[in-house]
């Protein structure tokens, strides 16, 4: 499968046994739902599950102006690849696509898209949840919330 290389900064791609596949990217510009759908679609799939993260307008009642995302890109790609490989190996999943943004995002924009395709829906739903939960624990990406009167690195302090 050919990737549109012109607008991505880092790509991890692995063609796997049984023609299953993963596609992992960190991008400095808008994520694209159609592109993710095309990367996940395959004839063996009976269902395709999306998780789309979006920038929320407030945190604990404080108005959020924007979010700044940064990544240790090399390691972020390899940690996201581990998540995808685990799903492909251990569950009935035949495609995993994980695209994550870096840079400045405003309210409503999309920091992450995870797509899982599977022959049956239950595995797709569970895998999608596993992928976002694990990403939030292990993948070296950080976000700073910019408020009207200050800013804070999310989760940094107890």
């Amino acid at each position: 499968m050919k990737l549109p290389s012109s607008h991505l900064s880092v790509v991890g791609e692995k063609r796997m046994k049984n023609n299953t596949m993963t596609n992992i990217q960190i991008k400095a510009n808008d994520l694209n739902l159609d592109e993710c759908m095309q990367l996940a679609a395959n004839d063996e799939a009976g269902g395709i599950c999306f998780f789309v993260g979006t920038v929320r307008n407030q945190t604990k009642g404080k108005k959020v102006v924007s979010l700044q995302f940064e990544a240790y890109e090399k390691m972020a790609i390899s940690e996201m690849q581990k998540i995808a490989d685990h799903l492909i190996k251990d569950k009935s999943i035949n495609r995993v696509v994980i695209h994550h943004r870096v840079g400045d995002l405003s309210v409503g924009e999309i920091p992450v898209i995870i797509v899982v395709a599977a022959p049956h829906r239950k595995a797709a739903f569970e895998a999608c949840q596993y992928a976002i939960d694990t990403l939030k624990e292990t993948v070296p990406i950080w976000k700073k919330e910019i408020f009207e009167n200050g800013e804070v690195w999310v989760s940094a302090h107890p």
Binding site: F69, A71, Y72, L135, K136
Partner: peptide
């Protein structure tokens, strides 16, 4: 601490030329 882009535990021995990174609490997604 990550060494050569892998999380490592406290006992891990560092070598000259390793790529070492401090990984504060992550908050992607």
């Amino acid at each position: 601490i990550a060494v050569n882009a892998e999380y490592r535990l406290d006992d891990f021995i560092l070598n000259e030329g390793d790529e070492i990174a401090i990984i504060p609490p992550v908050s992607g997604g």
